[in-house]
Simulated assay, not measured.
Amino acid sequence: MMDVVEIQEILPHRYPFLLVDRVVSLEVKENIVAFKNVSISEPVFEGHFPGHPIYPGVMILEGMAQAGGLLAFQSMELTKEEVKEKVVYFMSIDKAKFRKPVRPGDRLEYRVSVIKQKGAIWLLEGKAFVDDEMVSEAELKAMVVDK
């Protein structure tokens, strides 16, 4: 388990771009389950779309990517000082699919697992769920680099 304060010790993202609220489970080098509470008070809903708020698909992918970054950092057994000197860059997003709109009030659950890892490069399978129904999925490739 990891709360938002612990997440901020690992990820450099901050409001309004920190898209993971809590980590529910994490198996090093295997998988992570994390979530984000989608709220109407988020700035993205001012323009997407007035009177018909839909959480943007790219934000869902970014949340998956942030969960994947947490998994990579926790799997690399870095000290807190070492983590502060590194960042995760996403190299590609493949096979992205959006199956159902996400709306304010939904709890997005990210389930990200390692397909392959070699050195600093991670290939991840990301899936997003609302109420156990898949709303999005993608393959994410990332690299952990020095800042």
Rank of each mutant, 00 (worst) to 15 (best):
L70N: 08
R103C: 01
G68H: 01
L78T: 03
E62R: 12
D146S: 10
K127V: 02
S41W: 02
M91L: 15
S113E: 14
E42N: 06
V28I: 13
A142N: 07
V102P: 03
P43M: 09
L70D: 09
M134L: 05
A34V: 03
K141N: 07
V145S: 06
M76F: 05
H52L: 14
V38N: 01
Q74H: 13
V5P: 09
V28K: 15
V24W: 00
A138S: 12
M2R: 05
K127D: 09
Y15I: 10
E42Q: 09
E62L: 07
E62A: 01
D3R: 10
L19G: 08
W122Y: 13
G57R: 04
E109M: 05
E125D: 13
L140M: 11
V38K: 04
I115K: 14
G51D: 08
E27L: 08
E133Q: 13
A65F: 00
Y110G: 07
P53L: 06
M143H: 01
G119P: 08
Y110D: 13
E109Q: 10
Y55S: 04
F73L: 09
F73E: 06
E42G: 04
A120R: 15
K84I: 01
E133A: 07
F98Q: 12
S136D: 12
V88M: 13
H52K: 14
K29G: 07
M2Q: 10
L108M: 11
V87D: 00
Q117H: 13
V83P: 06
G119D: 00
I40E: 04
L124R: 05
K80V: 04
F49C: 13
K147Q: 08
V87S: 02
P53S: 05
M1N: 11
E9K: 15
G57H: 03
F35L: 02
A96C: 10
V4Y: 12
D3S: 06
L70A: 13
I54K: 11
G63V: 07
E62G: 00
K116L: 14
V145N: 00
H52Y: 15
L70S: 07
N37M: 02
V23C: 11
E85R: 15
D132W: 00
S136H: 01
F129S: 00
